[in-house]
Amino acid sequence: MNKKCAIIGTDDRLLYLQEELSSNLEVKLFSTMVWNEKLVQDIHEFQPHVMFFPIQAMMMEHPFTLPKSCEVLFIGKKFEEFESRERKVFYYLEDEQWIWDNANLTAEGFINYFYLNEKRSLYNKQFIITGYGRVGKRLAYALHHLGAKVIISVRSEHQLFEAKSYGYQIETLDNIIQKSEEQSTYLINTIPSKWLINTDASCFIKVFDLASKPGCLINNEDNIPINYVNPTSLPGMFFPQDAGYLIARSVQTQLSVLEEEK
């Protein structure tokens, strides 16, 4: 008899995760982002051995309890309910292979998003990318090879000169507002912290904030600039099948490691 796996979440990628895992597990998808009494009851009736939780933290409306059958948890964003549980816990957002593969899909997803919403070519357009982590690097590479002018802006001197070594223009994060006053440049933010004053968004043609919520705006509740967008989960938006298979590969790899350890 196959072990059971419960997948929780509403993301389209999870349908393909379910499809891939079903070859070795009995999988059931619970389409919700709310941890409530009904969900707890349904999960206890199903008695899963493996549970997959969504990337974003769920809304908690009921005490967090899991059936005794549950042996392994796959978690997206960390939150307190999981910290003291005596089960194997894997934070799939920290899987290095998944991070890089997902960064590739994010870069390609941004290009799709730009074409659909701006209805303009990337060629010869100027983009400032703030942040030079995995997503920033893959974006810079993709945009550069499509003929865009790429400027990398970070505070880290190490990352600045790494970017320069690949042929990109560089600028310190403290100077990009001053350098962009003519509103001739697009800004793509990948830094997951609040650093951009709302009124400074007007210095750019448009601000594409790819960081997870709450994004880069210092005041992100009121006076959202009209040229600011926060298109998160681009892989799920444009490539749910590919993105779902990437998550499945990460889950399957970890489960295989656990089997080998027994």
Rank of each mutant, 00 (worst) to 15 (best):
L105D: 03
S202A: 15
N220Q: 06
K262F: 11
N102G: 08
E157H: 06
Q97S: 11
V257M: 14
F74R: 02
V27S: 04
D11K: 02
N117M: 05
E261A: 13
L255V: 07
L139I: 10
I8S: 00
E81H: 12
R85Y: 09
V154Q: 01
V207W: 04
V251H: 02
K3L: 14
Q178V: 07
I197L: 13
Y186H: 08
R155W: 10
H62E: 15
G136R: 05
V72M: 10
I224L: 14
V27D: 05
G76W: 12
N219P: 04
Q159W: 09
K119V: 09
Y245N: 04
M33E: 11
L15R: 12
S153F: 08
A211Y: 01
D222C: 09
L146I: 08
V257Y: 13
V229Y: 05
L29R: 11
E19F: 09
I176M: 10
L25E: 02
T185Y: 03
E20R: 14
P54S: 05
Y91V: 01
I188E: 04
A57N: 15
I176W: 07
N24D: 15
V229T: 15
F161W: 14
V50T: 09
R87K: 15
M33G: 11
F90S: 05
G131R: 04
D200H: 13
S121V: 10
T130L: 06
F110N: 01
C216V: 08
K206F: 09
K179L: 13
R85I: 15
T172M: 08
S212W: 07
E71F: 03
D95C: 10
I177C: 07
T253M: 12
E61M: 12
I152Y: 02
I218D: 02
S180Q: 07
H62A: 11
S180W: 07
I128F: 07
A148H: 02
G236I: 07
C70R: 01
V89D: 02
G109W: 05
